[in-house]
Design a protein around this nucleic acid. Sequence first.
DNA 1: AGAATGATCCTCT
DNA 2: GAGGATCATTCTC
Length: 203
Amino acid sequence: MTRRFYARDTLNVAGALLGRLLVHESPEGTVAGRIVEVEAYRGADDPGSHAFRGRTRRNATMFGPPGHLYVYFTYGMHHCSNIVAEAEGVAGAVLLRAVEPVEGLELMAMRRGLRERRLLASGPGRLSQAFGFERKLDGIDLVGGEVWVGSRRQIRGPVFASRRIGITMGRDSVWRFFEKGPWTSRGPAGSEVLAHALGGRAG
DNA sequence: AGAATGATCCTCT
DNA sequence: GAGGATCATTCTC
């Protein structure tokens, strides 16, 4: 996608990423997957966001130019990967929570240490591991680099929205968007709504 | 199907 | 020095 695609409101970018192909062409090989689950994280207006309290060394990428990868390490074990949105200087990023594995399943399985397709990338830590996203990729450009998002969009069913997973502050915002199916991480059941019922903007 | 738990380390206060 | 945008495993219904 072009820079323009990412230089928009984080919620719009989150919805527009669903159904598109996420690709990583690394020296080890190429992996790709169709994005089926994301969460929007904003800035000073979002207490659930790393950027809520302003810029730090860790979250600096969130404030940088749109269309870059924001990767951070958490829980002592896992990486989480986001795509930066909004104009440069404005914090905003879309957490990549799950993809349907499409290409490079062997490499994903090797990195993950298991072969079951449903477990390769159904969760932010799993996805990051399967795609080889680590701290050294934090800040890389998704326009013209080894990681990018494809322009074709394929949605297999209705898009749902729910509260975000794993946070305490800002938990009321309905900023998680996903397609139901085997490739999505398991969220809290029963609290989701059809995304189009929100009228495009929720909060 | 849902709840509890341990692993493990970087970042910020 | 505390806690976290998680995962896999192990438990209890």
